[in-house]
């Protein structure tokens, strides 16, 4: 159900992000979704890629601190209120969202959101019971 996400520690400095994308580009890694959380002095880059294990190995070898975490990719109809309907469900189930971001839409034009939960299993239950589509991977959407 859940999909792997690679999180990378970044200092806030010029070229920091480019150093990461260089590693990915030169190794043919495809980025499927991306979000950058930033504080005054440092940031966390979160990536969904086509080959997470290899990405993590490559980034570690390049000297980055990278971690693999599990997130949910949720698919909704791309219309006003699409995201609201998901968040309403989670609120009803009292599931806290640690963070979320959007991925590129599917080829069939549906919106995709990436969620990180502390209580992953409960979130899956809540969403499943409501018939929400949880994507097993972003590789073929």
């Amino acid at each position: 159900m859940e999909i792997p996400q690679i999180s990378i520690f970044l200092e806030n400095r010029a070229g920091g992000l480019a150093d990461v994308t260089d590693v990915l580009a030169s190794n043919g890694i495809d980025i499927r979704a991306l979000a950058l959380a930033d504080m005054a002095d440092f940031g966390i880059l979160r990536l969904i890629v086509d080959d997470p294990d290899r990405t993590r190995t490559l980034l570690k070898a390049a000297g980055f601190t990278a971690d693999k975490t599990r997130v949910l990719a949720v698919e909704v109809t791309d219309r006003p209120g699409g995201l609201a309907s998901i968040l309403r469900l989670l609120r009803g189930g009292k599931v806290n969202v640690e963070y979320m971001y959007s991925a590129t839409p599917t080829k069939s034009g549906r919106a995709v959101f990436i969620f990180r939960f502390d209580e992953l299993d409960r979130a899956i239950d809540v969403l499943r019971d409501a018939g929400v589509a949880i994507l097993p991977s972003l590789n073929a959407v």
Binding site: Q5, S7, F9, A37, M39, F42, I44, R46, T65, D67, T69, E98, Y99, R116
Partner: peptide
């Protein structure tokens, strides 16, 4: 330097 041991992808843990 941030080591894998202390790194978290949750901002508040890192803070």
């Amino acid at each position: 330097e941030v080591t894998p041991e202390v790194f978290s992808d949750k901002m508040r843990s890192l803070e």
